[in-house]
Amino acid sequence: MKSVTVVGSGIIGLTTAIALQENGFNVTLIAKERFEKTLSSKVGAIWFPFEIQPIEKTNHWATLSYERYKLDLINTNGVSFIPFLTAYTNTSNTEWTTRLPEGTVRKALPSELPSGINKAYISIVPLAEPLLYLPYLFEKFTRNGGVFQQKEITSLHELASLNTLVVNCTGLGAKALCNDTDLHPMRGQILRCKKMNVSSFAESTQKNALSYIINRSTDCVIGGTDYENDWNTNIEASDTTLILNRIKAIGLSDSSPEILEEIVGLRPRRSHVRFEFDSEFKNVFHNYGHGGAGFTVAWGCAIELAELFSLKSSF
């Protein structure tokens, strides 16, 4: 059987590993930390193309992912489809709305717009709750015969020596691993709160003014921040206040959210997703730099990558 090693156990690494298994590969998954410790475990995980380039490829990957999430609609794995209001302007990427199934997206009525939002779409999109979905994926990977090894890879040379085919899904870790000067953190601070009786939405049209609520099955995630080149992983009280003030200004609820947890994560931001074979180590394929849209495009990237590997291994 054809063999591949995937490095990284976040949403990108797990979906890549499973897609390769489904295409007939024997897959080993190696990561510095298990999925519970990755950025993927911290996020709201709504399907929304946020801070990711290039747009054309993003929309394609997001569409493939949307269809794949339909196949994962299982009561116990955290996947559901929910209404989501997304603000937009004349310069926003709205092409993704044309790729959604008929009847699942429309322009919001003026009466449905939160305060300060002038235009928005309401669409039915996937939500994949990380604390349920990531364990589901990991169990599926191991049930399919996958092997996990907890190990830190410190160089491209070491990465390339792991197997005849290797996929680099190390997210922000690829900055040091690949000496990637384009890759940088986009710091996000969020609040995990008790579930609120409000609509899920995102206002991301203005830089440094990100605001959103994602209602999940037992809680909600309120955000957030989008600070470029910020490596700070500490909880900042000033950011918590900022997030709460923005939510209050939106006017969706008269009551203050009941905070359960404050969380910081560093999104792997790049001018464009690195989705290519390495120019020097020809057996290494890079799949990282998905910004704030990892759950949105993960399956799409994984499906395309697995098909590419199947073609390559047939020669």
Rank of each mutant, 00 (worst) to 15 (best):
E228M: 10
G24M: 04
V297T: 15
T5V: 15
I303L: 12
F148E: 08
N234G: 02
N163G: 05
E129A: 08
K282T: 13
S40M: 05
W61S: 05
F309K: 00
S80Y: 05
S111C: 08
L156G: 13
S279W: 00
E280S: 11
S161D: 11
Y136M: 02
I222M: 06
L260A: 00
P54C: 01
V284C: 03
K140V: 04
F285L: 10
N215Q: 14
T89I: 08
L64Q: 12
P126V: 13
E236N: 09
N234S: 12
C169P: 12
D226F: 02
P83E: 05
W47F: 08
F281R: 08
A249N: 13
R34Y: 09
P49C: 06
Q149N: 09
G24S: 03
P268L: 07
F277R: 15
A202M: 15
G224E: 09
T240I: 05
R192P: 08
N215G: 13
S204C: 14
T181K: 10
Y69S: 10
T240V: 14
L100I: 06
G223E: 06
I153A: 04
F315S: 11
R34A: 12
E36G: 07
M186V: 15
T16V: 09
S310P: 08
Y121D: 03
K42H: 05
I259E: 05
L252D: 00
I235L: 01
R106D: 06
G292A: 13
I52W: 00
S80G: 04
S161I: 00
H157V: 09
P110D: 06
D239F: 10
K175L: 04
G103M: 01
N287T: 14
K37Q: 11
P185A: 00
P110W: 10
L308K: 07
